[in-house]
């Protein structure tokens, strides 16, 4: 198939960017979206134009490195990551607009690449269980109810990609934070730090400049790992309990 691409190009964090139009031809339906961009880049390189910078690493939907707003949808039209999106989701002659994640706490580094280190700082603020190496008790000494462990796992599958922020009209990262709060809060090991964790993580979230959640639901619809909206409810509940108890 032949496609018209409108791609955001921006030389560096402080440069002005804009949409540039490119044509690609003979794209096979079996290609992944990023392989289609590889083809474009090879073409640009040949012409002596600098290739488009975009992030990817595992290319199998698990590392969370890839991003891209594709025709106004985070990770494109399917419920998956951009690297797992295939060209059979598009038609010959389509025009595809490709933009970076847009959020103040995710500044553009170059072209389609943004800086998501705000997520790391949110984890640093409390997204962990303090258990020094060597201090752990025998693993089966504390059973964890299976349903809770399952819920913990289901939300622990968050890949930290940032699509939730990109899709949210408020630029909020509540889905990401809620997923971690729920993951750790559902496990017996996560209880001792449960209340301080939620207060600290929400504090860091706001400090980074993410917007406030108004429960619109674009995040969950964009999430490639289908993290459900109820983690935000859990986040709010834990926060309310924590504040009530003076944390």
């Amino acid at each position: 198939m032949n496609l018209t691409l409108k791609i955001w190009r921006q030389a560096g964090p402080n440069d002005k960017g804009g949409l540039h139009t490119y044509q690609v031809a003979d794209i096979s339906a079996d290609m992944s979206f990023l392989e289609m961009l590889d083809v474009l880049n090879e073409q640009l390189n040949e012409k002596g134009e600098e290739p488009v910078a975009f992030d990817s690493d595992c290319r199998e939907g698990i590392c969370g490195m890839c991003s891209l707003m594709i025709n106004g949808e985070a990770h494109g039209p399917e419920v998956t990551t951009t690297c797992q999106l295939h060209m059979r989701s598009f038609k010959d002659g389509d025009t595809i607009t490709i933009e970076p994640w847009r959020a103040e706490p995710f500044p553009v580094v170059k072209d389609l690449i943004v800086d998501r280190s705000a997520f790391d700082r949110i984890i640093q603020s409390g997204g962990f269980i303090s258990a020094n190496t060597g201090s752990a008790p025998e693993a089966n000494s504390v059973p964890a109810p299976r349903d809770k462990a399952m819920r913990a796992f289901n939300v622990a599958t968050c890949i930290g990609c940032g699509a939730c922020v990109a899709a949210c009209p408020n630029g909020s990262a509540s889905l990401f934070v809620g997923a971690k709060i729920t993951h750790l809060g559902e496990l017996p090991q996560g209880q001792p730090e449960r209340w301080s964790r939620v207060v600290d993580m929400v504090g860091q979230h706001d400090h980074e400049g993410f917007g406030g959640c108004t429960n619109i639901g674009e995040c969950a619809a964009a999430c490639p790992k289908e993290i459900p909206l109820d983690v935000i409810s859990q986040l709010n509940k834990d926060l309310r309990t924590a504040l009530k108890n003076g944390h």
């Binding site: 409108k6 955001w8 949409l19 707003m69 025709n71 106004g72 949808e73 607009t97 933009e99 847009r102 959020a103 103040e104 706490p105 899709a167 009209p169 408020n170 630029g171 909020s172 400049g209 993410f210 917007g211 406030g212 108004t214 429960n215 619109i216 639901g217 674009e218 995040c219 969950a220 619809a221 964009a222």
Partner: peptide, 28 residues
Amino acid sequence: VILARRAAKARPVKYAVKKNNGSSISSR
């Protein structure tokens, strides 16, 4: 007002194209 201002600050550059997939008109 606070929420609206935070939202505006959190996304100073708007998307050229943006679709809504998961939200009701009412929420927006």
